[in-house]
Design a binder for these strands. Structure first.
Lengths: 208, 208
DNA sequence: CGGCAATTTCTGTATTAAGAGAAATTAGCC
DNA sequence: GGCTAATTTCTCTTAATACAGAAATTGCCG
């Protein structure tokens, strides 16, 4: 069995666990560690988003883990079924939030998370746009197309539909432009924050 | 009974319905009108978001409606239970996406939707931030606080947590700054899109 | 102050999604 | 090329959520 470097837990009250960071399962215990808390929160947050709890928890665990983990380690540490882990990992790979990595001398698949927070944010934003926004835009386009053939539609209703369509396509264009900006530059711009806004207000006056 | 102006449906094949736009219920019919389609899509989209279908459908209906509607009209037109409409309306008012409006000579409550798409987008963005992002930030802060008291935490794990915290607070600051920009100006900036980006690239070089 | 209309809250039901465990498939090894 | 470990697919159970209908409340009018 592979025995990767492991985490240097200095808990001397009990024998060192044979696997990586198998301290205790993330269950309703009285005093969860910071790491466990983080995973718990992250999982919950995912739930309130579109993502289900397992997926979010696994993501958090991998994000915090210094070493690649395999499916069984994840299953044990989080106390969720092995099959569940498998599906969740597949989904996370689909989002490109985690990657498969080979570990020397171990035939099992290991996974690491994207650790660059900016990259992570971009991946999530892109994924959500593709899966949620883009289909909506296409749907509205279809609607408006159909509306134009209808004579019985109230003009106000028609106008509202078009306004919405217009807004969505504007937002879409803007979004795509943002994605075309290199990550590093985008991060800088956002960190600059109010300075950018100040600059833009000036630029806006000049342009307008 | 109140009989507000109503929608000028020019469908002459059947008698004019007594209520506003009570054409047919939005059910699985073979050939839905553009308006019905819009509502259906919107409802579906809401479902894929955090919002439930009823809420999203009611919102769409009010958004498209030229006149204020009361709860019963909504209930009939969408074919959802009166109680459900009541709860959904309350939620929408909570988001400020719709408003109660008095209708002369009618004691029942009527509702209209915010029709400015930019305002709508801002309201949704604000609401989501408040309800989903802000609590997450607070949770992570708590986590990191706790983590700092732990000696057994792997330094890499600690670093990752802090990176995340840092990112979230940066994003939060940026977000708040964006909300402080007047709606009209924000719309202009986004519509300008690539022009703004071009300007910023120059500005960035100068500043850096 | 009684009666009625409108709205909301409450409760039970149905639909949907999440997750566990078993069964089946795939992939490396001797 | 069978054997074993690992992973995935499948199915069933359980839990969460949405929704309808009934009951209760609120508010207005005579």
């Amino acid at each position: 069995m592979n025995c990767s470097p492991g985490q240097l837990f200095s808990l001397d009250s009990h024998s060192f666990p044979s696997d990586i960071s198998v301290m205790t399962e993330i269950t309703n215990k009285a005093d969860p560690s910071a790491k466990e808390q983080f995973i718990l929160y992250w999982g919950d947050m995912g739930g309130q988003w579109g993502v289900n709890r397992s997926v979010a928890q696994i993501h958090a665990l991998l994000y915090l883990s210094p070493d690649p983990l395999n499916a069984e380690q994840i299953s044990e540490e989080l106390g969720i079924a092995r099959s569940n882990v498998s599906n969740s990992l597949k989904e996370l790979v689909g989002w490109r939030l985690i990657q498969r990595v080979p570990v020397a001398g171990d035939r099992r698949e290991h996974f690491v998370a994207e650790t660059d927070v900016w990259e992570m944010a971009l991946l999530i934003a892109k994924g959500r746009k593709e899966r949620e926004i883009d289909p909506a835009i296409r749907a509205i386009d279809l609607c408006v197309g159909r509306a134009e053939t209808e004579t019985s539609l109230h003009p106000v209703t028609m106008a509202r539909m078009k306004e919405m369509q217009d807004f969505l396509s504007t937002a879409d264009r803007w979004w795509n432009q943002m994605f075309s900006v290199p990550k590093a530059k985008l991060a800088t711009l956002i960190k600059m924050g109010d300075k950018v806004l100040a600059l833009l207000k000036i630029g806006g006056k000049k342009a307008g």
